[in-house]
Design a protein around this nucleic acid. Structure first.
Length: 314
RNA sequence: GGCGGAAUGGCAGAAUGGCUAUGCAGCGGAUUGCAAAUCCGUGGAUCUCGGUUCGACUCCGGGUUCCGCCU
């Protein structure tokens, strides 16, 4: 073990990137070359029974390289960034303790963000308060809630748009739960991540190529029985479109298709478009990301480069 | 071949003489316990040639293409 960094922080590797760019393949190669253990950073792979539509690593891929934080929840459940951060840090410390390197792989960029930068001591969500705020909005309109937020937390109201129910509810919820404004609480932040990070993203250089890979992959999912997978989830009877799991890209569109909301041709269009939009948002996160090495999906020397660039910080 | 109808942005689709809708897709951005979520912003069009008119997506004529019906 080499140790060139005075603080002696253990190493960790991040492999980020939009959907359909080859993260899993490279991660498995890395595991064969370095003493790495994979931690999934993906808000959809956490769900059991959602395999085809999430492009979950196959059984044989997982046999080659076990992934942590996959299949940890039932689709009726929900997860959160804070839970992810807790679970990921736990897994990272276990891996490091064994003298191995945590390799974080996935595309849920807010999870990475929270992991690297930490979170503020905000309270967890509260179902009852959310339900109450939502019914208030249904009666009085979201503008009323926004006005209320402007009174208790003008700074947050400034940046949260009145049409953004998710953030509006969260900001009000925080206040109701703590009697302090979100802005006040966000002045405190948890410690930075105690690892020496090597961060990579993998992306095809040409957007058109990314788009065609996305289209191809969605069609492959259909061939692999994606419709049946969603039919089975529907048949359980306890799932619905308001659950985070069923709002995942592809699942939502398939659900609506099975409801008879549109034709098969539109399913294809809408599923692919939703995936492209996801990729675009992921690219937006990546564009401003600090200390990142960008790899090209089609480069032949990605493995070599990751090893070389990671060692610089080991 | 004849008759009728239609041609508007990548797609769908309004506007019948004077402010060039709108939706979807695309593109850019935001992002602190649902994030594969949620939200914000945004370029781009009247098939072609001529005519009428102060002014044409709109009215008239020629052409082209498409659709339907008939022979």
């Amino acid at each position: 073990m080499s140790k060139s960094k005075p603080p002696g922080l253990p190493p960790a590797i991040f492999l980020m990137g939009p959907t359909a760019t080859g993260k899993t393949d490279l991660a498995i190669e890395l595991c064969q070359a370095l003493p790495c253990d994979i931690i999934s950073v993906d808000s959809a792979l956490i769900y059991k029974g959602m395999d085809i539509g999430t492009a979950k690593p196959t059984a044989s891929e997982q046999a080659q390289a076990p992934h942590r934080l996959i299949d940890i929840l039932d689709p009726t459940q929900s997860y959160s960034v804070a839970e992810f951060r807790r679970d990921a840090l736990q897994a990272m410390s276990e891996i490091s303790a064994q003298g191995r390197i945590p390799l974080l792989v996935g595309g849920t960029m807010m999870y990475y963000k929270a992991l690297v930068d930490g979170l503020s001591p905000l309270p967890p969500s509260d179902k009852a308060i959310r339900a109450q705020l939502e019914s208030q909005a249904a009666e009085q309109g979201w503008q009323v809630l926004h006005n209320e937020l402007a009174r208790i937390d003008p700074v947050a109201a400034e940046r949260i748009h009145p049409n953004d129910p998710q953030r509006l509810i969260r900001a009000l919820e925080v206040y109701h739960l703590t009697n302090q404004s979100m802005t006040e609480l966000q002045k405190t932040k948890s410690d930075p991540i105690p690892y020496s990070l090597s961060q990579f993203s993998i992306v095809p250089q040409d957007r058109a190529v990314l788009h065609s890979r996305i289209a191809q992959r969605f069609e492959t999912m259909l061939e692999q029985g994606f419709q049946t997978e969603v039919e089975q989830l529907r048949a359980r009877g306890d799932l619905h479109l308001d659950l985070p799991s069923m709002r995942c890209v592809g699942y939502r569109q398939m659900w609506l298709y099975l409801d008879g909301q549109f034709e098969h041709k539109e399913l294809l269009e809408k599923g692919i478009a939703a995936t492209r939009q996801l990729a675009k948002r992921q690219l937006t996160w990546l564009r401003g990301w600090e200390k990142i090495h960008t790899l090209d999906t089609f480069a032949k020397d990605n493995l070599t480069n990751v090893i070389k660039l990671s060692k610089l910080q080991l």
